[in-house]
Write a protein that binds this DNA or RNA. Structure first.
Length: 219
DNA sequence: GTTGCGATTGGCT
DNA sequence: GCCAATCGCAACC
């Protein structure tokens, strides 16, 4: 494990049901556990997220109200919202806010801690380790996340994807979201300062730095 | 029914 | 920095 931080228990649903920006910030440093307990288990440390606020956010899929694709964003927190884009890539989000209020956190990058062989097989053996889960499309490919995982409950013991909090307080850089036409200037991208797995463009420090030890809300 | 385009990526100029 | 790839979704007729 990196930096000696021990794993902590899976957070309760109330932790995910907080304001989307807070969850996005606090997810940096958490562990993604995929197919835990199997031969192809993968554990990866989240190093970058983006907040998508819902009906008030022109960049959010929820902006125009619920559709067949975005309906999961309007449901209870701690579910996975997975969409397919550019005819090529999947992107994975963690649903936030209370039931009936849309909000989600895009998982943009992570660092592999366990299951390196599994991830390398999915991504190809020419990809360097820090790049294996760099970028939202690459993250889904490396973790084997597809539309089949859309709507799964992260807190259901039978789900193949879980999130664990970790002790420790990663230094975080706040910057603008990536690749947007609308609302591109809002500072809703949260990156682990200096981590080699953070996606491009690497945020210029210091836009604004903070530590997730400054958390508000339920722990 | 038709159409324009995207919360991306990798390769090339 | 520019651009093609590739297709599901949502807007519009």
């Amino acid at each position: 494990m990196r930096r000696g931080d021990p794993p902590v228990a899976e957070p309760p649903r109330a932790w995910f049901a907080r304001p989307t920006e807070e969850v996005a910030r606090d997810l940096v440093g958490c562990s993604l556990v995929v197919d835990g307990g199997t031969a192809s288990a993968v554990v990866a440390r989240i190093v970058e997220t983006e907040a998508y606020l819902g009906t008030s956010d022109p960049a959010s899929h929820a902006y125009r109200g619920p559709t067949p694709r975005s309906r999961v964003m309007f449901g209870p927190a701690a579910h996975l919202y997975v969409y397919f884009t550019y005819g090529v890539h999947h992107c994975a989000n963690v649903v936030t806010e209370t039931d009936g209020v849309a909000g989600a956190v895009l998982l943009r990058a992570a660092s592999v801690e366990e299951g390196l062989q599994t991830v390398t097989t999915r991504r190809g053996d020419t990809v360097t380790q820090p790049a294996l889960l760099r970028g939202p499309g690459n993250l889904c490919r490396g973790l084997g996340i597809t539309r089949a995982d859309d709507g799964i409950d992260l807190l259901d013991p039978h789900s193949r994807v879980h999130i664990d909090r970790r002790a420790g307080s990663p230094p975080i850089v706040v910057g603008k979201r990536v690749g947007l036409r609308h609302a591109a200037d809002r500072p809703l991208r949260f990156s682990w300062l200096g981590d080699p797995a953070v996606s491009r463009p690497v945020p210029r420090e210091p836009v604004e730095t903070l530590t997730s030890g400054q958390r508000k809300g339920p722990d």
